[in-house]
Amino acid sequence: MKRFFASWFLSVLLASLVALPVTAAAQPAQKNVILATTTSTQDSGLLDVLIPMFEKKTGYFVKTIAVGSGQAMAMGAKGEADVLLVHSQAAEKKFMADGNGVERRIVMHNDFIIVGPPSDPARIKGTKKATDAFKKIAASGSIFMSRGDKSGTHVKEMDIWKAAGVKYEGEKWYQQTGLGMGQTLAVAAEKKTYTLADRGTYLALKKGLGLDILVEGDGILLNVYHVIEVNPKKWTKANFAGGKAFADFMVSKEAQAVIKTFGVEKFGSPLFFPDAGKKEEALGI
């Protein structure tokens, strides 16, 4: 028995020593492109399709670092990422204004939806405006589950509360999970509460969740994705060429076509809507 374990362990170690350098040395440094994006983007699975296409086409190797929206921006601002794929309007505008990025292009959008238990205690089903729905939730004292993690979704949610003019912080009916979208949905389902979710994650988890879409389609609920190339003048070590190549690819016809159909097969409806070349105003935001 002991001999078995000893030899098993030794063989694992030896194998790793032999195999590892091959993996580690596969890509030269300049081939590496660091893409900072959000967890929800990675969780949609879209990048798992697009990135291999890009890598095959260009020979670049993309390192996707999925973090919170705030951290993704910070990585770009510090030159630790080469290109960003993000969806927080206000933060992006500040990022550009601070001179951290050189070009910001629209890629696609998906949308947020307000979900809740089918019993709908706050009677928000069918409400046109998201702000009205939030007011009703607050007024009825029904529990709202927030992600509370400074993610794009959380930022969007806070924007809506502000637009609705409702004081929510510290209220008894306002709870925060501090978790990702998937987990927050699971918590909301478990506790039968309302929450704001992106459509993609909701569609992926819908089955067996027991939460219904109650409000959708309002302009404020749109979630628009941009690619931003970081400023090479500010950070000389950044792989600007690689970042630009990735940004160009994301708005290319080829990528846009993939975005258009992604998710249809699995969920019956697309998760994203390609928007390359469009003006922001055209989307009503």
């Binding site: 694992v12 170690l13 194998a15 790793s16 020593l17 195999a19 590892l20 993996t23």
Partner: peptide, 10 residues
């Protein structure tokens, strides 16, 4: 995982 953790342990 085995490779990374095995090498690190080694």
């Amino acid at each position: 995982s085995l490779k990374v953790s095995g090498t690190a342990t080694f």
